[in-house]
């Protein structure tokens, strides 16, 4: 291969590497970041974030609508299947998103392996439990008032 052909091939390779590979070479070899994994986490965070855009707008509207109303009114409101379904969706998306976000913070700032595992498990447990409490409350409101 001539010298110019070689250098233009190298330039081409460098260019395509810039376009297709956003990660450092070391990162590619190890395939790991601080969290030891990540594409699924990243995607789930975006998807729950996108879901929360309309859901939180709706919830702000709902909270303003219900503000100052007695419990009987809130129960009647939550008895509407659309409101109950949106509340349940809000709860699921919120706690999934919160748990993913908090995990990213923990991955970044807690370096001690065992402490990190314990904190992550506590966050997951708390998020799951709170989500279940909220979901059962929504179901009870929707079904029996």
């Amino acid at each position: 291969m001539s010298e110019t052909a070689k250098s233009s091939a190298l330039r081409g390779a460098a260019k395509s590497a810039r376009v297709h590979v956003m990660r450092s070479q070391l990162g590619r070899v190890r395939g790991l970041g601080a969290a030891h994994g990540g594409t699924h986490h990243w995607w789930a965070e975006r998807l729950t974030g996108i879901a929360l855009v309309p859901l939180s707008l709706w919830f702000i509207y709902a909270a303003l609508h219900l503000s100052g109303e007695p419990r009987s009114y809130v129960v009647r409101w939550a008895g509407n299947p659309i409101n109950a379904a949106l509340l349940a969706a809000l709860v699921l998306a919120t706690f999934h998103h919160a748990q993913l976000g908090l995990q990213a913070v923990v991955d970044d700032y807690i370096h001690h392996k065992r402490t990190r595992l314990v904190v992550l498990l506590l966050i997951r447990g708390a998020a799951a439990l709170l989500a279940l409490i909220a979901l059962f409350a929504v179901l009870k409101l929707a079904i029996s008032g």
Binding site: R71, V74, T94, A98, G101, L102, V105, A134, A137, V138
Partner: peptide, 21 residues
Amino acid sequence: GIALSVGTLLLVWWLAAAATG
């Protein structure tokens, strides 16, 4: 984000209270 995670406690309390009585 951290503040909102803690703030979910308020949401859960409100829902649970509405379902309780």
